[in-house]
Design a protein around this nucleic acid. Structure first.
Lengths: 336, 336
DNA sequence: CTGAAAGCGCTAACAT
DNA sequence: ATGTTAGCGCTTTCAG
């Protein structure tokens, strides 16, 4: 008894409404809307006109429910507000959007439980894949999802408990090169300032510093190694203390840019003649009042490659075994 | 004739599978999964056990298709890689996630067509609301969506063509305060360095500088105003030129942090005695070798409030008329 | 080239 | 307190 549904007030027009208006079948509307071939041009034009007239916009949720297609990916960062991860996120988004895929972003704030909750929530939203900066010790919670075909890529830090692609920076190699350079320049006492040793990148960078010493037939002087430095202030204080030693360091290698900034402040304010070298570039690094060497890398490239690996897996689930990719670093001059 | 579907190989288990396994009805599973009341505890336990056993995870897409609920929002930034917008994005995400809502982020790269395409795409994904940093001249393309109940909030810049909430920084007031302070200190010639005048924030900041002059019974000296400065380099060159005038400025107000950095370089390298004041704080601003005054604001707060306004509208579509909120700024000392 | 019918996985109405 | 039925808006068979 009901009329052909005059696309209910308040509701949005559906394909059924467009079909009714254009006097064609639902299926034809679907074909036109999705740009499928084998549709009579005249009919297609009628459908397009009706769609326009009614203000029809296809419901992407319904489409992917039925077709099983996945047109979003999830990005779980450890800290979205951090410049480094931001740059990565922007690159991931750019690659995805260029292929019609949107990115849902969230931040674990370095909390394992949050990471897990976010990742599983994204799976419930049926994302086509997941890029994760792991903060949890173990990603085994994703095992079932991965097995059912949701590809996962780990970024910046390796994941555990599941086999998945990993995109990392060559932390060890970069540190090794930077410290090697200092040793080659004749520095006998090289200080090393690091954030918490439990952080994967810090452990790797420390290992690189050790390797450089070993390369030179020497060993890291543990008295000159300070760990657990979270802020420039902490690094500054640590460096000031080191400079006050009877045998102060003549060079310092910093594990991240916060340490570099802190060490720089200490060195400048002490007027000390200390060679400075550090991992990570930073805003305005060219402006610092002293020449420094920086282990630089392309954060955007990291995100780009992660997205590309993920999209590749989504397109072709039968690709080769997961691999670890190490992005190269390079030593550059900063300051003046 | 078909058996009760032993949850097809390769596919994921559905509520039907869980219901079959637990020996209850589909609806009961739905109730348990969604934590609805009025379920016998023993039955609930059976359902939970079956769900666990089968590795069931509710399909959020199907749920919201049926229920019409919207549990994602869209954030269209003008430049995701920019620290300012990323800080905002992180804050938006934090607020949303705390309420079980995920954020799809994308960047228009300041391109009107991209903004439009992204925003409409997000609408097709049936986001519950949209936060947009407008780069297009007009957002009338969202008119139909807004009318159908998708709330929109404009961030950092006002939108046009539709009525929606706007969250802006008090650009004008901040600039007025900064320049007013310079004039009160007795500066007769205040230079003003700005990015492109077409940018809303720049126009506002310039207007603030004009107001400050008017307050002091004076007028902006147009010879000392330079616009279109995109980079620190450009600002540096502009400032160097101004310093070479017969009557050089004794103070400079910079419209954004890139200009501030450039002006700073020029002033320092010329060894000029010029008071520096600028909009936007920046990383390491405390380290610059000279006291500067900064118009600072809480970018995170901007994102937080935008998210809260949006979620409020989503929860209660019948709220009051859209409003423009101006976030306060404050003048702070930086450098040393 | 076009259409009718079925159903993706779930929740909303209505029973019971 | 539990189950039955219908159907969200779309795509997918499979027939014409």
């Amino acid at each position: 008894m009901t009329a052909p549904r005059p696309h209910r007030a308040g509701g949005r027009p559906t394909m059924v409404d467009v079909a009714a208006d254009a006097g064609v079948s639902l299926k034809t509307v679907s074909r036109v809307v999705n740009g499928q071939p084998n549709v009579d041009p005249a009919m297609a034009a009628r459908v397009t006109a009706s769609a326009q007239k009614l203000g029809f916009h296809r419901n992407a949720l319904a489409a992917s429910l039925r077709s099983g297609s996945r047109d979003t990916i999830g990005f779980v960062s450890a800290d979205l507000a951090n410049t480094f991860y931001m740059t990565i996120a922007a690159a991931v988004s750019a690659v995805a959007v260029a292929r019609g895929i949107q990115v849902i972003m969230a931040s674990s704030e370095e909390d394992p439980a949050t990471e897990r909750a976010l990742a599983l929530d994204l799976c419930q939203r049926r994302v086509g894949g997941l890029i994760i900066v792991p903060s949890a010790a173990d990603q085994a919670y994703l095992g079932a999802e991965v097995q059912r075909g949701t590809p996962v890529v780990f970024l910046d830090r390796p994941g555990r408990g599941i086999r998945a692609d990993e995109l990392l920076i060559d932390n060890r190699g970069g540190a090794r090169a930077a410290v090697g350079e200092l040793l080659a320049a004749g520095h006998e006492r090289v200080a090393v300032l690091l954030d918490a040793p439990g952080i994967f990148t810090m452990a790797e960078r420390r290992a690189g510093a050790e390797e450089a010493h070993a390369d030179a037939g020497r060993a890291l002087d543990e008295r000159l190694v300070v760990s657990g430095l979270h802020t420039p202030q902490a690094a500054r204080e640590a460096m000031t203390r080191l400079l006050a030693l009877a045998d102060p360091p003549t060079a310092v290698f910093c594990g991240n840019n916060r340490s570099t900034v802190g060490a720089l402040e200490a060195v400048v304010s002490a007027g000390a003649d200390v060679a400075l070298s550090g991992f990570d570039d930073f805003e305005l690094s060219r402006l610092v009042p002293r020449r420094i060497r920086i282990v630089d890398y392309d954060a955007g490239e990291l995100g780009r490659q992660a997205a590309e690996v993920l999209l590749q897996r989504m397109a072709d689930p039968g690709s080769p075994a997961p691999a670890r990719v190490l992005l190269p670093t390079r030593l550059v001059d900063r300051g003046r």
